[in-house]
Design a protein around this nucleic acid. Structure first.
Length: 282
DNA sequence: AACGTAGCCAACCGCGTGGGC
DNA sequence: TGCCCACGCGGTTGGCTACGT
């Protein structure tokens, strides 16, 4: 069977995703769902392979992604499931809500496996975590924060400019420090603070505010698009408010005004009938 | 302060599989 | 029935940061 190429490679972007690409992808899926990954990038105006879009969505942009450290329970579950299922990461991930197969795979190879090799009898325990080299390990969340910030200024600028989206990405979520941190800077109106290292209290505060804000939205505001996509209550907070700000068309909307903004943009997008038209606005 | 190394995570690659024609 | 297409999965790699010397 001749294998079809996943996409014509010429002219397609690879590597780290830019904030704009993330935004386009999220906005598109938000509006249309993802019935056809292969066609999606073209329709969304993305110079990406469909596979790449799918991966990005599943592993990073999906609204119900849970980030941050794995709890002891989660790790124990992974160990048990791995014993039962082997390297069937997707099957294991199915038992851990909010965790992706890729993430679990990474955690297995970087943490759990090594620990088990060092202590085959012992189960997983976050407390016993790094038997790894004496690398004074910062909490994973802190590392993630750094790494996210380092992603060619991608994530930070994206999240900073898009608090609505960042909150959705990190929603349902224990921690997504980069988003929280950036959002803190935005919500405090101090953009310089984005690069400051002394944000922790602000970040925590912003995260709380985010959660409260999310709860103030109702899924009834949006038409049904994709059952699985819309089944998450967090999804309703995704993207459009962020787009307003990204587009420089509005100051960060209050929870009260964002519903109207979202309706406005949704209407605009629906009328345009093609997300590529967004580039005109951009 | 500079350099080398280890650790981590996002993204890519290639294959298997199922569904439609 | 066989072919083609798209999707999903698991393995691997690249790039970045933090740590140790």
């Amino acid at each position: 069977m001749g294998r079809a190429p996943c996409c014509e490679k010429e002219g397609l972007r690879r590597g780290a995703w830019s904030p704009e690409e993330d935004q386009r992808l999220v906005a598109y899926i938000r509006q249309h769902g993802h019935p056809n990954w292969r066609a999606l990038p073209r329709q969304a105006g993305l110079l990406r392979c469909g596979k790449s879009c799918r991966l990005r969505w599943i592993n990073y942009l999906r609204p119900d992604i849970k980030r941050g450290n794995f709890s002891a329970d989660e790790e124990a579950l992974i160990v048990r499931l791995h014993r039962e299922l082997g390297n069937r990461w997707s099957a294991i991930a199915a038992q851990l809500p909010g965790r992706t197969d890729n993430e679990i795979k990474n955690v297995w190879h970087t943490h759990i496996k090594k620990r088990l090799e060092g202590d085959p009898e012992g189960g997983a325990s976050a407390a016993g975590r790094p038997k790894q080299k004496a690398r004074k390990s910062k909490p994973a969340a802190a590392r993630n924060k750094k790494q996210a910030a380092a992603k060619a200024d991608n994530s930070e600028t994206f999240m900073t400019a898009s608090p609505g989206l960042s909150s959705s990405v990190s929603s349902g979520v224990t921690t997504f420090a980069a988003a929280a941190e950036s959002t803190a800077a935005v919500s405090s109106g101090d953009t310089a603070a984005t690069t400051s290292a002394s944000l922790q209290p602000e970040a925590a505060k912003a995260e709380t505010e985010m959660e409260m804000e999310m709860e103030s939205f109702s899924s009834a505001e949006f038409p049904p698009i994709d059952e699985s996509f819309w089944s998450s209550p967090d999804v309703v907070d995704m993207g459009l408010g962020a787009m307003d700000e990204e587009l420089g068309l509005a100051s960060p909307p209050s929870a009260a005004t964002r519903d109207e903004d979202m309706e406005f943009w949704l209407k605009m997008l629906l009328e345009s009938g093609d997300m590529r038209d967004l580039s005109v606005v951009l």
